[in-house]
Amino acid sequence: DGAAVLPAPQNLSVRSVNMKHVLTWSPVIVPEEIIHYSVEYQGEYESLYMSHIWIPSSWCSPTQRPECDITEDITATVSYSLRVRATLGSLTSAWSTLKHRFNQNSTILTPPRMEITMDGFHLLIKLEDLGPHFEFFVSYWRKEPGAKEHVKVVRPGVLPVYLEMVEPGAAYCVKARTFVKAIGRHSAFSQPECVKVQGEALPL
């Protein structure tokens, strides 16, 4: 019937790093027009028990950008269906649904960024705050053969955190990884960072 038809958004995909999940898609282009998009999701429960029910995303119903932060919508470790449609005035496209359902346990966990410093003979670490999902396991050791490796759970905060008393003249190394309780997974360890302590080594 010749009515103008708005194309549905294409190329839906989810980029998930450190439990931050972003749905992206190719923008629908209509010259000199502003397109709005609406995003909806369905958890495994909804698709099994109430498949006609879709839930509007927290932040993107509607949105003008061809992406949507769905982190606050993905709140259980089950697989989620996601769909997007475009609207222009009274015109609405068909829904486009993500081809493969998304589960937060597939998120990419990167080794945490850390900063190792000294204050006198105190070895300190500062960790980036990745949000409430994350615990940080820090390993540190004296750089000498057979040295014992210590492990500490560190809570990121505004200030650097004390790890250990060190001895003058010695070298110490530190590495860290994250743990996400909700999905029961660790990141890889960061590259070890080593520091040399000022001063003369103590006589034996």
Partner: peptide
């Protein structure tokens, strides 16, 4: 089967929270 499915949430905010509970209990 009978609670989450028949619950009528007053708004989207509650709906999302109930969805979270339903999916968590499903696991």
């Amino acid at each position: 089967d009978r609670v989450f499915k028949n619950y009528q949430p007053p708004d989207h905010h509650i709906f999302r929270k109930v969805s979270r509970l339903a999916n968590s209990l499903l696991t």
